Amino acid sequence: MNFDELIRFLEKRLQMPMPGTVAHDKMKPKMANGAPLRMKHATPPRKGGVLILLFEENGVAHFPLIQRPNYEGIHSGQMALPGGRYEHTDQDQFQTALRETEEEIGVSRDNVEIIGSLSEFFVAASNYMVLPVIGKIDHRPDFIPEPREVDDIVTPPVHHLIEPQRLKKKEMIVRNGYKLESPYFDLEGRTVWGATAMMLSELVEILKEFPQH
């Protein structure tokens, strides 16, 4: 998947209507008994932003994923896109995604050009309304993980997302012992599931329209 051709395609495609929920649902976990997973929250969702950061390596488009450390929290140890919660100093969720990426993996926001965004996504597990921002950088960054927030960084090629053999399913045991049956992406030997997989699923549907893959 040629980097320059992909960027030109996305610059136009991201201005058009998004696949949205139809794409998200393809990677949505369910209870092991087949029932849909439902969560209720007493407060309105908080805002957040994550970044799909595209960069070129040997002519091919890649993007970084981070592994969260193990901690007493709902996303402990999971693979994720760099990002986090909106702060009052952020102009908008685009700036949230850029700031959090700089803090988590050391990529200066000044070096990232925003291409657009996917559909805003509600992360039910943590009660966040997240904007997945897509940006590009003209070189492979020197990633500097923030050790309290990032255990590891992997950089799969974008085209791996649309390879059928990387789409798998397995049982996941989550907090409180709940068993979920979850689709996931197998990327760089890591299990990418849940909210991150659902957001990436919308990108997958868009990439299927890319004429060069």
Rank of each mutant, 00 (worst) to 15 (best):
V112C: 14
N176S: 03
K170Y: 00
V112Q: 10
S126I: 15
G194H: 05
L167I: 14
N111L: 13
D142G: 05
R140Y: 03
I173H: 02
F121E: 11
R109Q: 15
R190S: 06
E149N: 10
L131I: 01
G189W: 06
D142N: 14
R166P: 00
P157S: 09
E149K: 14
P157A: 13
I115N: 04
K169Q: 13
D151E: 15
K170F: 01
V112Y: 09
G177V: 01
I173A: 00
S119V: 08
G194C: 04
I153F: 06
A124R: 11
K136A: 00
I114D: 01
K169I: 10
G116W: 06
Y128H: 11
T191L: 12
Q165D: 12
F185V: 02
K169H: 07
Q165F: 10
F121T: 11
K169P: 00
V150G: 01
E163T: 11
D151H: 13
G194K: 05
G135N: 07
V150T: 03
R175L: 05
L131K: 09
R109G: 15
L167S: 10
N111M: 12
Y178F: 11
P164I: 05
G177D: 02
M129H: 06
P132I: 06
L131R: 07
D186E: 15
M172P: 00
H159K: 11
P145Q: 07
E188W: 01
I115H: 04
R109M: 15
G189T: 09
E113G: 04
H139A: 14
E120I: 13
T191F: 11
K169L: 04
R140I: 12
R190V: 04
S117T: 09
A125C: 02
E146P: 01
G116P: 08
R190Y: 15
H160S: 09
P164C: 10
I144W: 08
K169N: 09
L180M: 12
I153P: 03
F121C: 08
G189M: 08
P141Y: 04
V158E: 08
I115Q: 07
L118G: 13
N111T: 13
P141I: 07
L161N: 04
N127D: 13
S117Q: 13
V150D: 02
V174R: 07
K170S: 10
Y178T: 07
S108C: 14
T155Q: 03
K136H: 01
E181M: 13
V192I: 12
I114T: 06
T155V: 08
E163S: 09
P156M: 04
E163F: 08
E149L: 14
E120H: 11
Q165A: 11
D142M: 12
S182C: 12
K168R: 15
F143T: 03
N111Y: 14
G135A: 08
V154D: 05
D151Y: 10
F122S: 09
G194S: 04
R175P: 00
L118F: 11
P156S: 05
L180C: 04
H160E: 14
S108I: 08
I114F: 03
V158T: 09
P141W: 02
L131W: 00
T155F: 03
G116I: 02
L118E: 14
S182Y: 02
R175D: 04
A124S: 14
